[in-house]
């Protein structure tokens, strides 16, 4: 029943518009994937840690941590250590990001009990797993 009806009916402007937009979208998506596949070299995760501003709340100091994965593979369970050197004693903090996809970044905060100076802060990527 339906088949016969549809054969008689031409697409109206709305259907044409949606078909054309969809077509462009599908071709673009596919093209982007192909471009990525040809262009991208498989580079292992390359994690860069940048420290951001320090803010104080209730006598504790939090520092913004921004971790970026510059590689083309996803890193999982990224463990980062942040050390605050100096007197009276060294403070150590750790941060864990569950996922850091390729070319993506994630933010977090570490808390210290005394005011950190930028020169006393040291960050190190302890490790990660590959999915």
């Amino acid at each position: 029943m339906k088949k016969n009806k549809d054969k008689q009916e031409k697409k109206n402007w709305l259907e044409w518009t949606i078909t054309i937009i969809s077509g462009i979208l599908v071709v673009f998506t596919f093209g982007f994937l192909l471009y990525q596949m040809i262009d991208e070299e498989q580079t292992p995760p390359d994690i860069v840690v940048v420290l951001g501003e320090v803010s104080e709340k209730d006598g504790a100091y939090s520092v913004l941590i921004k971790a970026t994965n510059a590689g083309n593979e996803t890193a999982e369970n990224v463990l980062i250590e942040i050390v605050l050197r100096g007197e009276p004693e060294e403070e150590r903090s750790q941060m864990n990001f569950a996922y850091l996809p390729r070319k993506a970044s994630a933010n977090g905060y570490v808390i210290f009990s005394r005011k950190p100076e930028t020169k006393d802060l040291e960050t190190r990527v302890l490790g990660y797993t590959i999915p």
């Binding site: 949606i18 937009i21 969809s22 462009i24």
Partner: peptide, 13 residues
Amino acid sequence: LLESFEEMGLAII
């Protein structure tokens, strides 16, 4: 093919 593209496009949006 057009129908499939249309559905895929709608699905992406």
